[in-house]
Simulated scan of single mutants.
Amino acid sequence: MNNLDFIENKKSSFGDGSTFRGCAGNERRRGGLFSSFSQTIPSALVCVSQIIKKTVLVIFLMAYALLSFSQTFTPKTFKGKEGNLPYQILLPENFSESENYPVVLFLHGAGERGSNNEKQLVHGSTLFLNEENRNNYPAIVIFPQCPKEDYWANVDIQYGPLGRQFEFLEEGEPTVAMSLVLQLMDSIASRKFVNNEQIYIGGLSMGGMGTFEFLARRPDLFAAAFPICGGGNPNSVKKYAGKVDLWIFHGAKDDVVFPHHSVDMALALQKTGATPRFTLYREANHNSWDRAFAEPELLSWLFSQTKRNQK
């Protein structure tokens, strides 16, 4: 198949004669009460000292992480028609409103849903925080967070003996979360420092499903997309085939979202004459995003796509 690659995995007591287990786990026998105390006090001091050292280290690491976090992604809240949407935004280093920047929208998976505006950064954020990537591809990166009770796509999910079965709806109103993200993106795209010829979307699992549906709903908004272990309704590809370049990823051993969902989308695109890139990792399960994020050509491919060079 043209442009489709299949990649193989490139206790303690203080009585007489009792045993005391110190912090390091070494046992000591005591001959009497005073002997017990004389041996226990130094051990206790050592234990306290170790606890203090570990506590200081943990506090230091937490403070360092928070400091690093504050210098990278910034938590925001978008106020939309249906409510509020938490999101994180990463601006290019030395950001200037007089410049034009690409925008990357990334949709997380179902496990990262919530309202703390942090969990969505678990997967994928380090790719864009990498210093070399930030230097080579200065861009505005947006990670919205879907509420726990919502979903990035219109899909019916059935649970049975064969696993999860997904039925992707072709029509219908967008979910509230989806609608809020589209409003957010319209707001972002209206800024003068945004290069509207280079707005991209990607996502994993539920976010991969959302990626396909966002393309169907707004094919003129995005220049390229990279859905990972997702799926969609093959009938919807006609709305964006030839307008948006895609690189689709999936794991052949995925037992959460079966790989045929991505295969079906790639084949449907090919039938329209489009030439999507498709990578099926022979040994990967659902976490094929690890392999996808490690693709050396992913970002160079992504940022080379513009609306102007679409067919």
Score class of each variant (00 low, 15 high):
Q145H: 06
T272W: 04
T126S: 15
S12L: 07
Y137I: 05
G230P: 05
M178E: 13
L162R: 14
V176P: 06
G83F: 08
A268T: 12
T306N: 06
L105E: 07
L127N: 00
S262W: 02
H123I: 11
P42L: 13
E27F: 11
S179W: 12
E149I: 06
I51T: 14
S70L: 05
S187E: 11
D245T: 12
I59H: 05
F69N: 00
V237Y: 02
L67T: 04
E118R: 15
F258I: 10
D5T: 10
E82K: 13
F166D: 03
T77I: 14
F293V: 02
L33S: 13
K192I: 08
D5G: 11
N235M: 14
G83H: 13
K10C: 05
N133T: 02
Y64L: 09
I199L: 10
A252F: 10
S300L: 00
L180K: 09
L45C: 13
V56N: 10
D186G: 14
E297R: 09
Q88P: 01
I41Y: 15
G251W: 10
G114E: 05
H261D: 03
V46R: 15
N195M: 15
L299H: 01
Y137D: 01
Q165C: 04
L85Q: 06
P259A: 10
W301V: 01
P138G: 00
P296W: 09
S38Y: 15
L182Y: 07
N100M: 08
S96Y: 02
A189Q: 03
I248F: 05
D5A: 09
P161A: 09
K79A: 11
P138L: 03
D220S: 10
T19F: 14
K53G: 03
W301S: 01
T72H: 00
L246W: 02
T211Y: 04
P42D: 12
R134P: 01
